[in-house]
Amino acid sequence: MAHHDKDKEVHFVGDSRVRVRKEKLLPKDYSEFPGKTEAFFPNFLLKEWMVAVVVLVGFMALVMAHEPPLGEQADPTNTSFLPVPDWYFLFLYELLKFKWASGPFVVLGTVVVPGLLFGGLFLAPWLDRGKDRRPFKRPAATGIAILSLVAIVALTWVAWDEHEKQLASQPKGSSEDAKIVNPQDPAYEIYKNNACVNCHGQKLEGLQGPALTGIGDAYTPEDIIKIMDEGKGQMPAGMFQGNAEEKQQLAEWLAEQDPPKEEESEE
């Protein structure tokens, strides 16, 4: 390997092709930013690490306070399960529920609107070419960004709210392998002697009405009395004909009907 400038001697590390660097890599002159600059390592990294520690403590508190949810094993034949995407996809999911973005116009919801949003974000440096960097000096970019943010937050909130409402309107009992808790309770007799048994079944398993096994997981005695008085869904109001004391007794017994194992499928 002949090199041509003879006057310059090139030194290599060992017999490798890595050149020895004569000049030391001193900190660069940051005259562009006058003020108190400091070296990245260890000075600045220490400060970043302190911020990270604060975040880490908060994060671990979250992790320890909330066990990660794990529902029941996936069952493709389950037709009553309400699908919900992870929260950061909710706004896209909600977008597709608009009439102008679904059915024959679904292209708008799946391609055009997200395409404009993410395409615009992707090409931001070429759409917003001005020299000014301050947000108030470039009202178009800032305005569009804030509008999009508001829209995303609103859509996410609407989607979540709707999902919660749908969940709340679903029957709460579980007919599968939940047993009656405390069947010796006199309240069970009250249950059997009233109209409840006609729709909810001898063993609370549900007939025309939903199963009541496991209902205690979802309702307090007050909720149950309210449903007995006012009805719910197809259940008419005032179905319980016994006296107030019996009603209270029955409601308390029903509220004890917890599922035998953890069957939380939703957070």
Partner: peptide
Amino acid sequence: IADHEVPEH
């Protein structure tokens, strides 16, 4: 990596 200056702002 270590020596580059980090500006004040």
